[in-house]
Design a protein around this nucleic acid. Structure first.
Lengths: 221, 221
DNA sequence: AAAGTCAATTTTGTATTCATATTGACATTT
DNA sequence: AAATGTCAATATGAATACAAAATTGACTTT
């Protein structure tokens, strides 16, 4: 058996990372309580948990907002993710079991199919699994959890970006290099390739966001 | 103004990392509530926050224990810290301002005095500040916060260790190398030296803990 | 018309009460 | 005697009630 809070947490966390709840949206306790037909108590616990994962911002006596991530905070997150994932690839390269490597290869092959079909949704799903396998391949639960959490918080930005770009082939080619390095247990190359891959994606995200930001400020004027 | 929860959080978090509250100790809501002369509600929020930082383990309907960190979890944490701090040093080496570098140098000099006097407490304090300056030197709040949180969770083990060891000179010499690298903006060396430094400390911690663990299991038999 | 103040309403923080699950002891049964 | 089952006590999960702070809107005043 589980507690009410965790089920509601999962629902809300999902709605936040999937973009159903937009950044800056107010999360008020009473509406949420009535929506889920519970009292305020479990809702407050959920909000606290969401805050601890960085999905919402809560200020005492002010309330809770869906996290709105500024440019500098975003670049902090992207830099951290870039380095952490490179670290994961490095460690995974000399720590993954044969079975784990096979799984990675398999997912990568499936991704190729999604790319050729231009199936964006499927690609995103497999991409998620790809990075999960690598972080799990570190056999370090703390690192895997940390990077997984970061990816969750960033997924909104990635989705927004992948919709407007047709660089699935490029990404897939880069993944190929990473897979090759890990399969051959070459930690140095795995690190470099993963880092370069993420660095490129990061700059795209930043580029896109600062573009839309300038648009906004023009509109506002 | 602040909320009751955060003040109590700080007190309890401090008691946990300082070892006043021992790993495995039960944290019951009613005793805590009476101790702080508040109701259970803010206590529950504090416990939740402590859990999100990994300082306590809470299981639904079971209660809350001060986190007891197993050997495998500890090595995960040490590995993560080792790599993260090395990363910090690397980034800080090419991002710290002149003022920040001066501050680092100053703390390092003060540490030398503490070492020569054999002042353990002061050394620990300065050591904390030393690592804080470097993580802050990344100018990446997320990374700094992450590594700071990790250090907090690990500080109990470090203290236990530093009491039984007289290797302050060794550590200080290693710090010297790190400071030199950062002052001269040599990111590669800063990374390597910091990584080696932490790796050495980590192995000491593990060594010590597994020793006391075997003692325990012998006793239990 | 604009700015400032004050009151009313709304929302969050805290306390209290109610409900339910776990735990430990004791008894019963095999 | 060991094991299992039941029951009472206790602690946590959830709901409700109360208090305090903040926001909002209207009204006054300049």
């Amino acid at each position: 058996m589980t507690t009410i809070s965790v089920s509601i947490f999962n629902i809300l966390a999902n709605e936040i990372v999937s973009g159903v709840l937009k950044p800056g949206a107010k999360l008020e306790e009473i509406p949420l309580a009535t929506r889920f037909k519970v009292s305020r108590t479990p809702i407050r616990e959920v909000l606290r948990d969401l805050a601890s994962k960085g999905l919402v911002q809560m200020e005492p006596r002010k309330g809770v907002l869906v996290a709105q991530i500024g440019l500098e905070e975003l670049s902090d997150m992207l830099e951290a993710e870039c380095e952490l994932e490179a670290l994961c690839a490095q460690i995974a390269a000399h720590r993954m079991s044969l079975l784990e490597k096979k799984q990675l290869e398999r997912v990568h092959e499936l991704t190729a199919i999604a790319v050729s079909k231009g199936d964006d949704a499927r690609y995103l799903e497999l991409n998620h699994e790809f990075h999960n396998l690598i972080s799990a391949g570190t056999h370090n639960k703390l690192i895997a959890e940390t990077v997984g959490n970061l990816r969750g918080r960033l997924s909104g930005f990635r989705q927004a970006q992948s919709k407007t770009e047709k660089r699935l082939q490029t990404s897939h080619a880069e993944h190929q290099c990473i897979v090759d390095a890990i399969l051959s247990s070459d930690a140095v190359i795995a690190f470099q390739k993963m880092r370069a891959h993420n660095a490129r994606l990061s700059s795209k995200v930043i580029e896109q966001l600062s573009k839309s930001n300038t648009n906004k400020s023009i509109k506002t004027k």
